[in-house]
Design a binder for these strands. Sequence first.
DNA 1: GTCTATAGTCTGATAGAC
DNA 2: GTCTATCAGACTATAGAC
Lengths: 202, 202
Amino acid sequence: MNKPEARTRIQERNRAAILDAGLDVFSQFGFRGATLDQIAEAAGLSKPNLLYYFPSKESVYETLLQELLHTWLDPLRAMRPEGDAVGEILGYVRRKLEMSRDYPRESRLFANEILQGAPRIMPALTGELRDLVNDKAAVIRGWSAAGRIATIDPHHLIFSIWALTQHYADFDVQVQAVLGPGDPYPAATAYLEQLFRRLLTG
Amino acid sequence: MNKPEARTRIQERNRAAILDAGLDVFSQFGFRGATLDQIAEAAGLSKPNLLYYFPSKESVYETLLQELLHTWLDPLRAMRPEGDAVGEILGYVRRKLEMSRDYPRESRLFANEILQGAPRIMPALTGELRDLVNDKAAVIRGWSAAGRIATIDPHHLIFSIWALTQHYADFDVQVQAVLGPGDPYPAATAYLEQLFRRLLTG
DNA sequence: GTCTATAGTCTGATAGAC
DNA sequence: GTCTATCAGACTATAGAC
């Protein structure tokens, strides 16, 4: 009855509070810069109590990274070869931008992990991520060859989608400093649609 | 004779070694995640000796940030209103991408500072940076109004240039994991020129 | 399950010999 | 100028009372 799959409601709530607090702190300071004190306080628990739910700082971080990977690539996976080429790519851009808007902490957690050299996520980058990207790059190359979109480098197209959409989560502070308060996403959505439409139909 | 302007050659060399090592470590781990031990070892000095040259960890970091700001905005400043509109913007993209290629650590230092909420650089963001961006945005808006480039949101155009060029420095590990070893910059240069040319002449 | 207390280590910074 | 030695505080993690 003590298996992870059979937790009480209080346990579920505390576990979720720890992960939510960990996401706050790790996404801002990275693994090394974050402290258990910060996370415990944000979760409303004592530090020993936090360590009752997770055996170590590392385990909190790795749980977050694993949950992140689970959903991070979904928008790209959803790109269908048999769909309308421009529409599929624009749809991917839109979904990715929505993820930046709705899950900015996850985007920053990922950015921090990469900036630190991806010590814990590297296997997924050279494995799952690379395979998926190469698969979708082949799809895009096929669309180009069939004349359904302009001829472009499919890998750099994917990089540019990542860069442009994640920028609004990762550099949010800078965007707000320049634009002032207010939601930048409506204008960003319109701008990115315009950008990719012209690129793909050029 | 002990003013900062009158240092011996050894002092200059050690100071430079500390700043270089600090750039290595801070750009990877951020301010909180970096330690003086790491920096001292990378600089080939003892920790007390490092603190002979800089009074604190903070002072090393702030010196780096200040030197960074000094050159970070140069490529944007160099955009001339009287030049060829498309050529000026493409030139900015090219210079910014060259900075990512030649100074990736500086790009990552900046990214880390922003991810952590820009605690030390915020005044520059809402001051110098914001003013310069608004100034250049007006130039771009003028180019659009004169029909020399397509009509686009000038602020998001600038954001997209930052995002696309800095991505190759900040997410370098991911780019290499996907593409494999080899210099990604030739293809990136060609891709970005194609992208912005189509966007601006669409 | 949650707490106080604390062990053991790391970290930024200082003292003082040479 | 550079070193060894070391301090005070912060850090991860554990022990043990309740």
